[in-house]
Write a protein that binds this DNA or RNA. Structure first.
Lengths: 230, 230
DNA sequence: TGACATTTGTCCGCCAGCAGACGGTTTCCC
DNA sequence: GGGAAACCGTCTGCTGGCGGACAAATGTCA
């Protein structure tokens, strides 16, 4: 799957690659690093947005909460990705997203204005950001398309494939993932119900396609999973 | 609704605004304009992507078709917007979208490479593009969230509001739209069935919220529509 | 190590809304 | 202006999967 590896590559490509050293130094000066614990919220929607973040280690869940308290997960990201970029759009508006650490995470924050300055000075960086946003957009398109055309079983299979590709380790055609999402969270991501996720996963287990316990998730038969997801 | 007008403003803001004249002249040289008829396809997914487009007049539907021939509408855009930007991501890959004119449209095409050059030279333009992509991303997030949380009636109401805001003319609190989407197309956009759209629209008509014939669509009670959509 | 919180597993009743059918209306194009 | 094609309106049966309920397993923290 050549496309996928390219996607991966672009995503994990260091965003400051190819930047002259003196610029890099400036970046170092204007950014601040910190560690957040599992389940800690990184920014609240009420705060006026002023920083954008880079995730160095761990996993972060980006979500929204509706007025009546229901949650929707917009994305789950891993090391090397940036988030909060949408705040570039807002002037003094509030964020609409919540970011929550799914495990111990190391993040790096840069003030929005500083970052915007940086963008103006470095077309290369700017292009990189644009491409990343484009990739996100694509993923969302995919997601909408899945929601419209696929039933729950297919959506969950589809999710597992993405999950495996982004966060799993492949060895001889078998992918192992250290899971960091609950069934409830998978349900939010696939627009389904918790119970349905549990049932479907167990169905897949019985069919021998996957195997899982609380501490690991193994995909035995990628081919079959692809077939189910289509 | 302050947010909305800002959204509108950003979207319809001329993308080349503030560009020095000599640059502008270059843009003129490398771009080519053309007119397309209603229902004409602007680019096919099979073609390697090489141009990005600006829509000057008319409306364009951006969609995807699955292997088994089902269609999903990704977006519907009006004058002032650009499309095909995602091709910036692809090297020599095929487009995954289809663009189709919904009425007589005037478009302007620029070669991808040329445009990329332009971006490198103009941080201002680059930022503008980034912001637009961000807006699109937001809209998609909204759409996913709607799909997950709202029932068909709400989604259709929600669609009507966007439709009105983007393409309608407001006069004394009443919005009139010259419709260019069929019920089938609205169904694709709202992830529902044609019959359901017909029924729901008629329900809204009976309730006095909207009024429509084949040649015009009027929204009488924006407030009520908002309430239904929430 | 025990108690409380969180997550997973299973069963089932219920209904939103999809999809098929078919007839009426408008639009398009020769 | 007439025939075909596209679009709209309405009725109806059927079902995917949501959501409530409750039990079991696992995690967590004192």
């Amino acid at each position: 799957m050549p496309e996928k590896s390219k996607f991966w590559y672009l995503k994990h490509f260091n965003i400051f690659e190819g930047m002259p050293d003196e610029e890099m130094e400036k970046v170092g000066k204007i950014s601040s690093m910190s560690t957040v614990k599992k389940r800690q919220i990184i920014f609240f929607p009420e705060q006026p947005s002023q920083s954008i973040f880079f995730l160095k280690e761990g996993h972060v869940k980006l979500s929204r909460v509706t007025e009546d308290g229901r949650e929707i997960i917009l994305d789950v990201i891993g090391p090397g990705e940036l988030f909060g970029e949408l705040s570039l759009l807002d002037e003094n508006e509030q964020r609409t997203e919540i970011a929550e650490a799914l495990d111990e995470a190391v993040i790096c924050a840069i003030d929005k204005r500083d970052f915007e300055e940086l963008l103006k000075r470095s077309p290369q960086l700017n292009l990189e950001i644009t491409k990343r946003m484009g990739l996100r957009l694509r993923r969302f398109q995919e997601r909408v398309s899945d929601l419209v055309f696929k039933d729950v079983k297919k959506r969950i299979a589809s999710f597992l494939l993405r999950y495996a590709e982004e966060f799993g380790k492949m060895k001889k055609g078998i992918v192992t993932i250290h899971p960091f999402l609950s069934h409830q969270e998978i349900a939010f991501l696939t627009a389904s119900a918790r119970q349905t996720v549990t049932t479907t996963l167990n169905e897949l287990k019985t069919a021998g396609v996957i195997d899982f316990s609380r501490k690991s998730l193994v995909i035995n038969d990628l081919g079959k999973l692809h077939k189910i997801a289509r």
